[in-house]
């Protein structure tokens, strides 16, 4: 009961925030919600299934590029968005088929190399993809279900809808039989194999779902904020969801949102208050890992709030 109330409460608060927040925080929260979807996707792979990928920028950027390029060539936003989801899923499955033959550090490196190759490919075919400069999406085309996404209100609504769908699906998923098999991979792969699970297909399915979320986030980000570019495929964007998840709490349903929000707030505050934004991020990570190694929600769960989803 309490988990259900918590989820509903968070979503209600987010709806209220959409009406109450001043312009700047309102826009920032819309970005956070989309990045939280990316982080939830990462959480499915890393937090629940134990797959530490360093190449998720590939799926995020693939989703963004597919949607952006389709719209650039005249496709409407709706179908283009679907294409973005498909691109995120497909890249995750394709790279997963190969990368899942490895584990641990090798898995990290292989995913990182695939993402690097993808980023270079975007640059190499710059004439088609816009290369490093990227391209803006035409404002007129940025309409979804009759909503004008260049306006703050509709943009927030779409970001929140996407986040809510992602959150509820994730919650249902991790409570399902399949979700338990994912967690079994993380906890003890050998034992789950003996219990009759097929580790490879379980992990591949988890990766595909993770790619779906990442692709959706990338596609939505391009659509909502009007710019598509290869810079979203750099390794920095593979590190970000990892940080979000670790900060908020790996393997918790609300950790990705909390992590994305705190990180965004931190970067924003650091760049205003000091000349040394990088140091603030660095110190935060170190403090966090020393004093709350399971992330904020993970530590709370350990310290007594055992019901935290």
């Amino acid at each position: 009961m309490r988990p259900a109330l918590l989820h509903i409460g968070v979503l209600a608060a987010l709806v209220a925030a959409g009406f109450l927040l001043p312009a700047y925080q309102h826009g920032m929260l819309a970005r956070i919600l989309v990045m939280a979807v990316f982080a939830m996707g990462y959480n499915l792979a890393f937090g629940y299934t134990g797959l530490l990928s360093l190449g998720h920028a590939l799926h995020f950027c693939a989703g963004m590029m597919a949607t952006g390029l389709a719209m650039r060539h005249g496709l409407a936003a709706g179908p283009a968005l679907i294409l973005g989801l498909a691109a995120g899923t497909a890249t995750a499955m394709l790279t997963g088929l190969l990368a899942l033959r490895t584990a641990g550090v090798s898995f990290m490196i292989v995913t990182l190399m695939f993402a690097q190759a993808f980023h270079l490919t975007l640059l190499y075919y710059g004439g088609f993809t816009g290369g490093d400069e990227g391209f803006p999406l035409p404002s007129a085309a940025r309409r979804l279900f009759g909503l004008d996404l260049t306006q703050a209100g509709p943009r927030y609504a779409v970001a929140l809808a996407l986040f809510a769908a992602g959150l509820l699906a994730q919650w249902a998923l991790v409570r399902s039989r399949f979700g338990r098999s994912m967690i079994a991979m993380r906890e003890n792969e050998e034992r789950s194999r003996m219990l009759g699970y097929n580790p490879f297909t379980t992990k591949l399915a988890a990766l595909a779902l993770s790619g779906l979320y990442s692709g959706a986030a990338g596609a939505a980000y391009g659509l909502l904020f009007g710019y598509v570019g290869a810079s979203f495929g750099t390794s920095q964007y593979s590190i970000l969801p990892l940080l979000y998840v670790l900060l908020g709490g790996a393997g918790t349903t609300l950790g990705p949102l909390l992590g994305a929000g705190l990180m965004a707030w931190l970067i924003d505050a650091a760049s205003s208050l000091t000349d040394s934004p990088l140091a603030v991020i660095g110190i935060t990570l170190i403090v966090l890992v020393l004093f709350a190694p399971k992330g904020i929600l993970g530590t709370l769960r350990e310290k007594g709030l055992k019901w935290l989803p």
Binding site: I239, I286, L288
Partner: peptide, 25 residues
């Protein structure tokens, strides 16, 4: 951190931000 693999990664990511900032400053 007891050399926990994931914690070590986060800690050394944090450290690399710090070192970059130090060099920049």
């Amino acid at each position: 951190l007891n050399y926990n693999p994931e914690s070590t990664i986060v800690a050394t990511i944090g450290l690399s931000y710090l070192l970059q900032q130090g060099a920049l400053s």
